[in-house]
Design a protein around this nucleic acid. Structure first.
Length: 605
RNA sequence: GCCAGAGUAGCUCAACGGUAGAGCACCGCUUUCGUAAAGCGGGGGUUACGGGUUCAAAUCCCGUCUCUGGCCCCA
């Protein structure tokens, strides 16, 4: 078992490394890539001023894969203007020569910006703390307030591309005016740029929205409104496997299933505090028998009602209750995105009610569960301990300390290292969030474990302890998939639509060479089906070339081809996804292999 | 929600003021074939929806819905 896990992890790591290779840029030249990109953002700004006189400038930093610069322009910027800007950048770069840094006093700086009418830059210069240096960087007669650092000159070889235009609020605050942002990227070599662009193409190819259409996995509909996912049968099959796996893990760890309604009286959410703290994200009330009801945005109040239904003894704790609970949240239209950001989604939600003493053990249990689940899908992950927020939060300092200590202790027990996310906790308690890395090297937030001091208080939860005293239980919220929709969307991209055998919507396709071999194939299909495998028998009149093409298009893991030779020897010719070479094996041997792959939830295929 | 762009057959796209088209998919007939598209034929669109301009609108204008890229927020 241990070696099997190691093999899984190794396989996943190799695939991650291979795919991520595209985005790792080697360090070269005397300046880091981020410095080059920052300088190219200046170059772009100077080009924009040349082409759009009267432009106001915001900020223009380097970011993870490139840079951006925010502008306020007299006219809307269209994507097709990017080429013009690029050409102007090349023209300026040719004659630019050196990049020169000058230091000024606050007054001098303000005067220089005033002269050019740069209102955003003026605001920026005013917010530079006293005592800090105020510098400008200039090239080709164009200067910008900037702390640097920058490359020394523009006549070095470098390669860039402007990518897209977008809107962005000044200083990220939606009360401020919206500026136009141009994103781009830059590299020291042509090859690195080409490699990065190839990686972006690969990301595009793996986009779950495209694959979702191509593989007939899911859809959304204008008739239903944005943010609601319709799972097609093929993705339904994947989800059933995910749910089965999920439940197997939970059952083995002492969780019990609960089921709660989707709608409840508004008063329930008033008691829970959701109305007050979460109201903007909740759907409007509906009147039932003249009383207001709400669609649930979270599952916790429902689980609490079950807890409260009778007195609880310390003997029962910890209680671990789990539900695949579908919740609905009003998300602003602009944030919706495929399966990754939706308005209705199913959380693999669970609430653990326990004593303070039990907390570290419970946390360790959850973390182990997270690790087992994520690694089965081939994800690497990082765990972050999120501590008390600076602004409002509830609970005494002592309670927070104890909970954080319990989270740390639990993580140590489970052998999971924690990064620190200072002040990132919820107002009601500290938490551990997981970021998992997919095959393309991108990070996603899914799993979370949260301590909650708020709800037990609000609902006055209690248990009777050994000494007969009523005490307050601690509540742990945790979700591992987070949202089935989001996790599945990430999975589609992670696998590029090539689901491993255990998850594949169709696991095996049988292809008879002639009609006469159809009966043999149907028999084998029935055998495989009886094993619980998802099989299709392609015994219609089409030519076999076409069937192979179709099955390959659907990314079916195994094609079994049977003609005269196979029928005679009770064999099948196995054509494995993405493998040129094929082998002819006894059917029983294939069946055993398929069983094994499914049972172990192998990532190998 | 905000800024910008877009919505034509199931999918990918063409037509960009003058009769809405192609490839793939789908259906039918023929073909029974040894490894990634067999041949022939056929059906399918109130051009997202609603209004307007015009002799004439997929095409121009306005509104709504949905989507895309971002901002903000988040599972």
């Amino acid at each position: 078992m241990a070696s099997e896990k190691a093999a899984k992890a190794e396989n996943a790591a190799a695939s991650v490394a291979a795919k991520a290779a595209g985005k790792v840029a080697p360090l070269q030249s005397p300046f880091p890539l981020a410095t080059l990109r920052h300088s190219v953002s200046h170059l772009m700004a100077s080009a924009v001023e040349a082409l759009f006189p009267g432009a106001q400038f915001g900020f223009g930093p380097a970011i993870e894969h490139g840079f951006y610069y925010d502008f306020e322009l007299p006219e809307p910027l269209e994507e097709r203007a990017l080429e013009r800007i690029e050409n102007e950048m090349r023209r300026i770069a040719k004659k630019a020569g050196a990049m020169v840094c000058s230091e000024y006093t606050r007054e001098e700086a303000a005067a220089r910006l005033e002269k050019r009418g740069q209102k955003y830059k003026l605001e920026a210069v005013q917010s530079i703390p006293a005592g800090e240096k105020i510098t400008f960087y200039a090239h080709a007669g164009w200067e910008d307030l900037c702390e640097g650092p920058h490359i020394d000159r523009f006549d070095r070889p470098f390669f860039f591309k402007l990518q897209r235009v977008a809107g962005a609020y000044w200083r990220g605050d939606e009360k401020n005016p919206m500026l136009q942002r141009v994103y781009g990227t830059a590299f020291w070599t042509k090859e690195d740029l080409a490699q990065h662009l190839a990686w972006l193409e690969e990301v595009e190819r793996c986009d779950h929205r495209h694959l979702g259409t191509e593989l007939d996995l899911f859809s959304h509909h204008q008739e239903a409104g944005g943010g609601f996912i319709f799972w097609h049968p093929k993705l339904g099959a994947v989800r059933r496997e995910m749910e089965k796996f999920w439940w197997d893990l939970h059952q083995a760890r002492g969780y019990m299933p609960v089921y709660t309604p989707h709608v409840a009286r508004e008063t329930l959410f008033a008691v829970s505090g959701h109305l007050e703290n979460y109201g903007d994200l909740m759907y409007a009330p509906m009147a039932i028998d003249e009383l207001p009801y709400r669609v649930k945005p979270m599952n916790c109040p429902g689980h609490i009602l079950i807890y409260q239904n009778r007195g609880r003894s310390y003997r029962e704790l910890p209680l671990r209750w789990a539900e695949l609970g579908t919740v609905y949240r009003y998300e602003r239209s602009g944030v919706l995105h495929g399966m990754l950001r939706v308005r209705g989604f199913t959380q693999d939600d669970s609430h653990i009610f326990c004593t303070p003493e039990q907390l570290p053990g419970e946390i360790a249990g959850v973390l182990e569960l997270v690790r087992t689940l994520l690694s089965t899908y081939g994800f690497e992950f990082t765990a972050y301990l999120a501590t008390r927020p600076k602004e409002k939060s509830i609970g005494t300092e002592e309670v927070w300390e104890r909970a954080i200590a319990a989270l740390k202790e639990g993580a140590a027990k489970a052998g999971i290292p924690l990064e620190l996310d200072e002040g990132g906790g919820a107002f009601y308690g500290p938490k551990i969030d997981f970021k998992m890395k997919d095959a393309l090297g991108r990070e996603w937030q899914t799993s979370t474990v949260q301590c909650d001091f708020n709800l037990p208080e609000r609902f006055e939860l209690s248990f009777t302890d050994k000494d007969g005293a009523k005490k307050r239980p601690i509540m742990v919220h945790r979700a591992i998939y987070g949202s089935l929709e989001r996790f599945t969307g990430v999975l589609i991209e992670h696998y590029g639509g090539k689901f491993p055998f255990w998850l594949a919507p169709t696991q095996v396709a049988l292809i008879p060479i002639r009609e006469a071999h159809g009966e043999y194939c149907r028999e084998l299909a029935a055998r495989l089906g009886a094993e619980g495998l998802r099989v299709t028998c392609m015994d219609d009149a089409a030519h076999m070339n076409k069937k192979i093409k179709e099955a390959a298009h659907d990314k079916v893991p195994f094609l079994l081809i049977a003609g005269e030779r196979e029928v005679a020897e009770r064999k099948v010719t196995v054509r494995q996804r993405d493998l040129e070479q094929q082998e002819s094996v006894p059917f029983e041997e294939f069946l055993e292999r398929a069983r094994q792959l499914a049972r172990t939830r192998s990532l190998v295929l």
